[in-house]
Simulated assay, not measured.
Amino acid sequence: MIPNWKIYPRSQGHSTVYLQNVVTDPFITVGDHTTYDDFVRDPRDFQRNQVLYHYPECNRDRLIIGKYCSIACGAAFLFNAANHALGSLSTYPFPIFFEEWGTDAGAVANAWDNRGDIVVGNDVWIGYEAVILSGVTIGDGAIIGTRAVVTKDVPPYTIVGGVPAKPIRRRFDDAVIARLEALRWWDWDEERIRRSIPAIQAGDVDALEGMA
């Protein structure tokens, strides 16, 4: 049994979990220290409640989430089986109901368009009830606004919001983003990160580079 402190990062409550230690699906990969907070349902059920229409036995599609991400309550990852085949003359998913229609049981995945994996970078903040669609890649350091519906890739360190989500602004200028991407502080060992927290919180890239 995993001890509580490995699941819950805060002793004050159990609404937040380290996702890496509660996800069991081999087609879901989560990096170190990434958290999910859910004040409505048990956050340990993230895999069942927030990763939706995910049938990797048909699609082999994956959810990949990096390190040090913060995922807010109700954020959902909507996979390929939520789609319907747009190239068909009808959006009705006949292949799913193969018993009713006598179609090939092995062709169920023909009922939807397969757009690929969902990939979330490192140090990404996903806001309350945001929805990430299949095939989307979110860059390092990006921020996804509350109830945004993300249908396209999000560049690193970019804030997006709305339905469908569109860029609002970049968090830093190109030079700072390039320096942060080169540093990749999230790959450092925990002791170095612990020493670097004041520089990270102060937005001091020069000091952070000095810790590398």
Score class of each variant (00 low, 15 high):
N4G: 01
K6T: 08
Y8F: 14
S11F: 05
S11C: 11
Q12A: 15
V17H: 13
V22W: 08
F27Y: 13
F27V: 04
D32W: 13
D32V: 13
T35N: 09
F46I: 00
Q50L: 06
V51W: 03
L52K: 12
Y53F: 11
Y53R: 10
Y55H: 14
C58H: 12
C58R: 12
G66M: 10
Y68M: 05
S70I: 08
S70T: 11
A72N: 02
A76E: 03
F77V: 02
L78F: 14
N80G: 10
L86A: 04
L86P: 00
P93R: 14
E100T: 15
G102H: 10
A105G: 04
G106E: 07
A111V: 11
R115P: 02
D117T: 03
W125I: 03
A130P: 01
V131P: 00
L133S: 11
T137P: 10
D140R: 10
G141R: 12
T146Q: 04
A148I: 13
T151V: 05
Y157M: 11
V160C: 07
G161I: 06
G162A: 08
V163K: 15
I168Y: 11
D174Q: 12
A175L: 07
L183D: 00
R184L: 05
D189T: 07
E190W: 13
L208A: 07
E209N: 03
